[in-house]
């Protein structure tokens, strides 16, 4: 048992680093993912994750595998696409989901092109699926800092963000905080995705946001409960995913997201809040 669960982390530093990175990521990703899901913005999350790619790739083209350049490029590109997609949806007749899809496909194509021009196929794979087993000190500090900032900012915008989700008309009638809260939330989303990009790559970083949040929906009835479940799911997916990857040789990033996806599958079936099987167990109806 020890050899199976504990030894990999005790004996190998790269496993401890990967664990620390995923745990930090899961803590920040939990609340952001839940809000993303409740605001029906899962596709926005996906788009932002792809949008980071060309920016990070440009940083890579200019400075090589430099943490600062790729982070800055990713942030800039993510924020730019957040802004542009919002403008296109607001100013034209195109529905927001179609506009987002157009942006994320364009970003993906552009990013892959830029990385391929400068780097190897290994670089490309690292961009798309991350390299959680190769996190260095600077990257770990970056991820931890991003999670800290995300939690602090979320605490400030929490009430207007939730009120805007339930009853936007009411919030706008009592306060002007709705629009700034939404914009701050988009910025946090880009930030946590950039953090996730270093560990899980652009294609999978959104997975640690969305998949644990959807698990939360099947286990809790209120927002706080969903966030708690999402964070725990994210963390457990990190631990189990890394172990699976260690013992089987499966790539680590995909292993983490697959474990989360398995938790999602189980929740869909057995979750106490609206799970398919739990909800269909024949029981006597309640008193009126």
């Amino acid at each position: 048992m020890y050899d199976l669960l504990i030894a990999p982390f005790v004996e190998f530093e790269f496993m401890r680093r990967a664990l620390a990175g995923t745990l930090a990521l899961a803590i920040g990703a939990g609340p952001i993912g839940v809000v993303l899901m409740l605001r029906r913005m899962s596709l926005v999350g996906d788009t932002m994750a792809h949008a980071i790619l060309p920016g990070a790739a440009l940083g890579f083209m200019v400075a090589g595998l430099d943490l600062f350049a790729m982070t800055l490029g990713g942030l800039a590109a993510g924020l730019a696409v957040a802004l542009l997609a919002g403008l296109v949806a607001r100013l034209t007749e195109l529905k927001e989901d179609a506009s987002l899809a157009a942006f994320f496909l364009a970003s993906l194509a552009l990013g892959v092109t830029i990385v391929s021009m400068r780097g190897s196929n290994v670089d490309l794979l690292n961009f798309l699926f991350g390299s959680v087993l190769a996190l260095d000190d600077a990257t770990l500090i970056l991820i931890a800092a991003i999670t800290t900032v995300a939690l602090a900012v979320l605490a400030v915008i929490w009430r207007p963000l939730l009120m805007d989700s339930v009853d936007p008309g009411f919030l706008r009638s009592v306060s002007r905080a709705g629009a700034p809260a939404h914009i701050a939330f988009l910025a946090l989303l880009v930030l946590i995705l950039v953090g996730g990009f270093h560990a899980l790559g652009t294609l999978l970083s959104v997975g640690i946001l969305i998949v644990p949040a959807t698990v939360g929906r099947f286990w809790a009835r209120d927002v706080n409960g969903m966030i708690a479940v999402a964070i725990v799911t994210g963390m457990l997916s990190g631990v189990v995913g890394l172990l699976v990857s260690f013992h089987t040789g499966a790539p680590s990033g995909p292993a983490i997201i697959l474990v989360a996806a398995a938790a999602y599958g189980l929740s869909v079936l057995f979750g106490p809040v609206g799970g398919l099987i739990t909800g269909r167990i024949p029981r006597r109806h309640l008193e009126a």
């Binding site: 409740l38 009853d167 008309g169 809790a220 009835r221």
Partner: peptide, 16 residues
């Protein structure tokens, strides 16, 4: 000023 929005503008699936 207190405002009652139309009920359709409220997201009733929100867990509150």
């Amino acid at each position: 000023v207190a405002y009652l929005p139309q009920i359709a503008e409220i997201d009733r699936s929100f867990p509150i």
